[in-house]
């Protein structure tokens, strides 16, 4: 009985965490997250609205950048987080200047 109750509580708790997690990942607080791990942007493609924040979390031991050819660049040191506020013209392809085989894409939605 107790065990069953506990299980149900755990289930509910898990559900709540998943819900909160999703809401945070999707842009309720205006932030879209990209993880950098083993020399890859995950997810490689994101959709944002102008004014929202793009947040890169670098889990590698290597410094990376999010660089737009002829445009902006964000430096993301090893183990650190870096951000950019998306503008209306940020539908772009970007890459890492130090490791150009790392590629990502941003789509700005209306």
């Amino acid at each position: 009985m107790t065990a069953r109750l506990l299980n149900r509580r755990q289930l509910l708790a898990t559900g709540a965490v998943v819900l909160v997690g999703n809401t945070l990942a999707r842009a309720r607080n205006g932030t879209v997250h990209v993880t950098i791990e083993t020399l890859a942007f995950l997810p490689a493609e994101i959709e944002v609205k102008a004014g929202e924040t793009i947040e890169w979390t670098n889990k590698d031991r290597f410094a990376h950048t999010a660089t737009v050819e002829g445009g902006w660049e964000v430096l993301i040191p090893p183990g650190k987080v870096a951000t950019r506020i998306a503008t209306a013209t940020d539908t772009v392809e970007y890459y890492c200047r130090f490791h150009p085989n790392m590629k990502g894409r941003i789509k700005v939605s209306a």
Partner: peptide, 16 residues
């Protein structure tokens, strides 16, 4: 394998 990805990146950086 991580090293290979890293060094492939270095090669492209060097080419740039």
């Amino acid at each position: 394998e991580t090293g290979l990805k890293l060094f492939q990146g270095h090669q492209q950086h060097a080419e740039h």
